[in-house]
Computed example of a mutant assay.
Amino acid sequence: MTTYVWNYLPEYEKERAEILDAVETVFSSGQLVLGASVRGFEEEFAAYHGVRHCTGVDNGTNAVKLALQSIGVGPGDEVITVSNTAAPTVIAIDGAGATPVFVDVKADDYLMDVDQVAAAITPRTKALLPVHLYGQCVDMAPLEALAAEHGLAVVEDCAQAHGARHHGRLAGTMGDVAAFSFYPTKVLGAYGDGGAVVTNSDEADSALRRLRYYGMEKVYYVVQTPGHNSRLDEVQAEILRRKLTRLDEYVDGRRAVARRYEEALGDLTGPGGLTLPATNAGNEHVYYVYVVRHPKRDEIIERLKAYDISLNISYPWPVHTMTGFAHLGYAKGSLPVTEALADEIFSLPMYPSLPLDVQDKVISALRDVLTTV
């Protein structure tokens, strides 16, 4: 059987009864859209983060888009972010009508190089959009200071950082608004698409609730401002309610998997060898993905296929190099660290229900390959 980076079936086998009960709860409730399950999840997710508001939406991409729109980002505005991210981050900025502006990432943690942000700010800059990538948070204090100095908003992309902390603060609680994805692979994943935006702003929350429901608010069928059809599904919300109670357990499981990798592969690190994930001071990593780095990445991945192991790359094509964003004008070499990472990083299997024998298979095969590559 082929080993993949992610597999939901071990978790489903363990939680099947509760997942099916969640489905039954919704189907027997008499309300299938924006009912008690969505309201309950919104209240519980907000409470988990210690914030005033949560608005459930249909996916993580729209969570970012609506978060931007809720604070007034639109055509003519610029949003500073990174190219080393999943394309939906940038698609959401474009979808809001704004222009993405990229800064490079750091070579040690692959996160936004906050020292480059000040130089990227222009009179058109409206928001800073740090991506808490791979499971740990961007260094937020400098961004918060820049935002305050220049009158900018901070929009956190937390799609990969549920439960992560930065100097004690949860991802999603450090900006003006924060977007989450509940795609099945996420640290807190649904059994389909889903997303949410959290905020302490009454104004942003009110805007979000209009935006996700066509632009309607108190009087249905009356559009106040054009919006979207971006509602969180009742079934997914009820499943997420059940899984939210185990979010910290999921995080602990991911950290245990990461520790086993570190213990088993640590002796293969060094110049020209394998680079394991680095956790920054003050960060509590949740290991959404376990990203490693090697100069012979492509050869390693190809040779692992002989062991029936299929690995993923997050991400092989930086967003600024994609044809769809060629109009932004970023030439090859403009973001050197991001481009170098794209040639060398790859992900090892990472999910809390990863069977030990499967992880051992990956470790053994990788050690075999690395000793002869």
Rank of each mutant, 00 (worst) to 15 (best):
V292H: 05
H294G: 01
T269E: 11
Y307P: 00
V289R: 10
Y288A: 07
A281T: 15
S310W: 14
N280G: 12
P318K: 08
V319A: 04
K296W: 01
Y287C: 11
T269W: 01
N283Q: 13
N312V: 15
F325T: 04
R293Q: 13
L268M: 10
H285Q: 09
V291N: 11
A281P: 12
T279I: 12
A306W: 04
P277E: 05
I301S: 01
L274K: 03
T323K: 11
G273H: 03
V291K: 00
H294M: 02
R297Y: 05
A306T: 09
Y288K: 07
Y307G: 03
A306I: 07
N280Y: 08
G272F: 09
V291Y: 00
H320F: 09
E284V: 12
P316V: 09
N280E: 08
L268K: 01
V289M: 15
P277I: 03
T269A: 07
N283M: 09
Y315F: 13
T323Y: 10
T323F: 10
A278G: 07
P318N: 05
N312D: 10
V319E: 00
A281K: 14
K296R: 15
G282W: 03
N312I: 14
L274E: 05
V292C: 13
R303W: 10
G282T: 12
V286A: 07
Y287A: 08
T321V: 14
T323P: 12
G282C: 13
V289W: 06
R303A: 13
D308R: 12
V291L: 15
E299Q: 15
G272S: 06
H285R: 08
D308N: 15
E299G: 10
Y315T: 02
Y287S: 02
E302Q: 14
T275S: 09
E284K: 04
P295S: 06
V292R: 04
H327M: 06
P277D: 04
K296F: 08
I301M: 11
T321N: 05
T321F: 11
A278R: 15
H294K: 02
N283H: 12
H320M: 00
A306N: 15
R297W: 10
V319Q: 02
G282F: 07
T279R: 15
H285N: 12
R293N: 11
H294V: 05
L274Y: 05
P316I: 07
H320S: 02
D308C: 04
E299C: 01
A306H: 11
R297A: 08
M322R: 15
T275Y: 06
N283I: 03
V319G: 01
Y290F: 13
I309Q: 01
H285I: 07
T279V: 13
